[in-house]
Amino acid sequence: MGYTWQYYDLVLAGIFGSLAAGVLVGQFTAVQPTTAIVGFSFVAAAVMGHGLFVNGPVDQPTDLTDEVDALN
């Protein structure tokens, strides 16, 4: 049985892809590298925001109040 892609795998790929695109745009176009990387980092931040707040890693908001036994 092979590996199945999960949502958070795609989030990580989206973050990497957007930052890599910023580097490539900065290197191979007339856009300044710092401008391209900063611009594409906003895309990465949007992907992270979606992964954290729109489709968060909890099932219910009440899951956020559960204590973590491993840290006690």
Rank of each mutant, 00 (worst) to 15 (best):
Q27H: 03
A70P: 00
A20P: 00
A44D: 11
V58G: 05
S18I: 03
A30N: 08
V11S: 06
A44T: 13
P33Y: 01
V47E: 10
Q60S: 14
D66C: 00
N72Y: 06
N72F: 05
Q32V: 00
F28Y: 14
I37L: 10
A44E: 07
A21C: 06
Q27T: 07
V58K: 10
L71R: 03
Q6C: 00
A20I: 09
N72D: 12
T34G: 08
D63M: 04
P61S: 04
F16K: 03
V23G: 03
Q27V: 04
G51T: 10
S18N: 06
P33L: 02
H50I: 15
T4D: 09
G49E: 14
F40R: 02
G51V: 12
H50V: 15
G17H: 02
L19Q: 12
Q32W: 03
L71G: 00
D69L: 05
L12D: 14
L24Q: 09
P57A: 15
S41R: 03
V25G: 00
V23I: 14
L19T: 12
V31Q: 01
A45K: 13
A70Y: 03
P33M: 01
V25Y: 00
G39C: 08
P33S: 02
A70E: 13
V54S: 15
L12H: 13
Y8C: 05
D69K: 08
T35V: 13
F42T: 15
A30Y: 02
Y8Q: 13
L64I: 08
T35H: 04
D69F: 06
G14W: 08
V68Y: 05
V38F: 12
S41H: 10
P61K: 05
V31A: 01
Q27K: 09
Y7F: 15
D69N: 04
Q32Y: 02
F42G: 12
L64V: 04
Q6K: 14
T65D: 13
G2L: 01
L12R: 11
Y3N: 03
M1K: 05
Y8W: 10
V38N: 13
G26R: 02
D66S: 06
G22C: 01
G51N: 10
F42A: 13
L64H: 07
T4C: 02
A44L: 08
V11L: 12
S41Y: 08
T4E: 10
V68A: 05
G56F: 07
V38M: 12
M48I: 15
V23N: 04
T65C: 00
G51R: 11
S41N: 11
D63L: 03
Y3P: 00
A70M: 02
N55A: 14
L52S: 14
L24S: 11
Q6I: 02
E67G: 09
P33W: 03
Q60C: 06
V43D: 07
Y8H: 11
L19A: 07
Q6D: 13
A36L: 01
A13I: 09
D9C: 00
